[in-house]
Design a protein around this nucleic acid. Sequence first.
DNA 1: ACCTGAACACCGTTCAAGT
DNA 2: ACCTGAACACCGTTCAAGT
Lengths: 216, 216
Amino acid sequence: MPAEPARRRPGPSPRFTREHVLQTALELIDAGAPESFSMRRLADALGITAMSLYGYIKNKDELIEGATLIALAAVRDELSPDAPWQEHLRAAMREIHAVLRQHPNLATLVIGNRSRAIGLFRIRERILQTLLDAGFEETTALHALGVLSYYALGFATGQAALAGIEPEDSLPELPPEDFPRLTELARQYGEHASDQAFEFGLEQLLGGLERTRNGR
Amino acid sequence: MPAEPARRRPGPSPRFTREHVLQTALELIDAGAPESFSMRRLADALGITAMSLYGYIKNKDELIEGATLIALAAVRDELSPDAPWQEHLRAAMREIHAVLRQHPNLATLVIGNRSRAIGLFRIRERILQTLLDAGFEETTALHALGVLSYYALGFATGQAALAGIEPEDSLPELPPEDFPRLTELARQYGEHASDQAFEFGLEQLLGGLERTRNGR
DNA sequence: ACCTGAACACCGTTCAAGT
DNA sequence: ACCTGAACACCGTTCAAGT
């Protein structure tokens, strides 16, 4: 690189809002592989040095939390408040799933990061509220909350792991004599992580909850 | 147990089996935080340099796959083959859950790693076999396979994220006016990630599958 | 006040050289 | 054949100094 004059124009050196930094982070997280996101790459994308980022956020965890919050802001409950509780849960779960599908790497980062992003708790509050209003006992409601959130997060992370992989490559080569069923269904194996599979599981869970609430 | 060569070099020049390397890796993964596991630390624990590891495994992903395989070797099906399919699924899911609870950081590493550890496919084969034998249609069986595996993996990862955190610290400070229910149940919030919650969700899923198989 | 370079303490992995 | 040090191309983060 040729030596430039050490002097830098003090002119329009760009200053960002925290939101702009977080938004750029989210775009970068969406663009690459989950592990390819780094402070240094984000700084590059913004045209500043990595160290300058620390003027906007405390550390990388807080940065990911902030990006999560922005992404989750898209989750809204549009249902009328007198819709049955099953409808509310179904809608909430579908919205979470849709958002995580749009930002697949976020799911991977969040699940491994013990994220305390307040957006996650906004959704949990809403689910918990729905369950309690539906008449579930407190402990049962908390159990259901855990089941529903980890199902959504786990499934989305699983789908993210298969993103960009050809369906027929989602299975490694397996000896047919030890894996007869997987071998037989190899071509359709990708179905296990499809959106229909998510819906299928959601309906199993909602049906189960309904049965539980009606006294077994 | 290390293979003892006891020949030719003076000084500490131990040679290991691949199994010993993988076993040590698993212990190290269990011991610390998920992100604290590194090739260099593993080499330290073995008393060799990081570069020597590449004589035993191709890279870090393969190392984690190998450790996963060792851990999953503990999963066995002890049921008699004529037990009802629900019992088989329940047993398989509980065994997976138990193993992931014993190696919590492994769940985190596996879910973010698109692991192709053959041990995972051994379990999937078994679940798929059970579902097909129970009479589920192929697509439905694959959907159920995805739902069950991602539920187990997602829940275990969620529990791992809370490991070592005091139950009362599992919630960040939230404004009570926006989060009335979570605030109200803050003391019991840890319940959402308990083993009972896992069992609760498992029963919802099994009940749902049973209903599905009996024609809605 | 904001941004910087240099530095620290790490990573995974390659490679040529040593025994 | 196995292990090594040195090196490469990265990390997140701190800190004193520059503007």
